[in-house]
């Protein structure tokens, strides 16, 4: 699903965000991406959806070399990847329903299908009763779930979640994790960047640890730190 070889990202201001990263993620995996703030987690996710271009090395997603995609190919690649952004990226003047349907409208999904899919993800994340509410009227956990709903509404092959439990209390965090595991069970590959030690340690999934842009650990059934 994801394959990198010596992947390096140096921002125009000279910051080396990723350095010679080589790894692969298979279809159906659930992977935690951990590391201190500034380690390069978000950068890696941004490279995968081609918000940023690699400086050197290879990155292929879905058998496609990210660096050589044409404009429209980028658009089509993104349709197969769902993203939960660290900063939510919900539109304040659109309702919960509209925020989610928007993601389908702009890729020209049929009206009937939009309706059916949006209601089905709203049901999955438990927000059916809030479909006509604006994001500002939701709690942090609810907003996070709207992001999740939008990310999966197009049934992506790959789901990138950047700190999806970032500002949530432990109970709400677990609710989100349950949803992610459910989605993973249905076949979606998940790559989740997180600082949440408790969740990583408890779930015992594959853990990829970055520090200062370098891969420092890649363990199946790992913990947040080496000792765990």
């Amino acid at each position: 699903m994801i394959l990198t070889k010596d992947l390096t990202k140096i921002y125009s201001n000279g910051v080396v965000a990723l350095e010679q990263l080589s790894l692969s993620v298979e279809k159906g995996e659930f992977v935690f991406l951990v590391g201190p703030s500034g380690a390069g987690k978000t950068t890696f996710l941004n490279l995968i959806i081609r918000r940023e271009l690699p400086t050197a090395g290879l990155l292929s997603v879905n058998q496609k070399n990210i660096a050589s995609l044409k404009k429209d190919e980028i658009a089509f690649l993104r349709r197969s990847i769902g993203v939960i952004f660290q900063d939510y990226k919900l539109l304040p003047h659109k309702t919960v329903y509209e925020n989610i349907s928007f993601a389908l409208e702009v890729i020209e999904t049929g009206i009937k299908e939009i309706k059916q899919r949006v209601y089905s993800v709203l049901e999955l994340v438990g927000l059916l009763n809030k479909s006509n509410v604006f994001p500002s009227e939701l709690s942090g956990g609810e907003q996070q779930r709207v992001c999740l709903a939008r990310a999966i509404v197009n049934r992506p092959l790959l789901l990138l979640a950047d700190e999806p439990t970032g500002n949530l209390d432990p109970d709400t965090s677990w609710e989100i994790m349950e949803l992610l595991r459910e989605i993973n069970k249905r076949g979606t590959t998940i790559l989740m960047a997180t600082h949440n030690k408790e969740i990583v340690d408890k779930l015992r999934k594959r853990v990829i640890a970055l520090d200062h842009g370098k891969l420092i650990r890649d363990t199946l059934r790992g913990g947040y730190t080496i000792e765990a």
């Binding site: 918000r51 404009k71 429209d72 658009a75 702009v106």
Partner: peptide
């Protein structure tokens, strides 16, 4: 930005 990120063409 969101349109582009969810895969809308230019």
């Amino acid at each position: 930005e969101i349109m582009k990120l969810v895969g809308a063409t230019d």
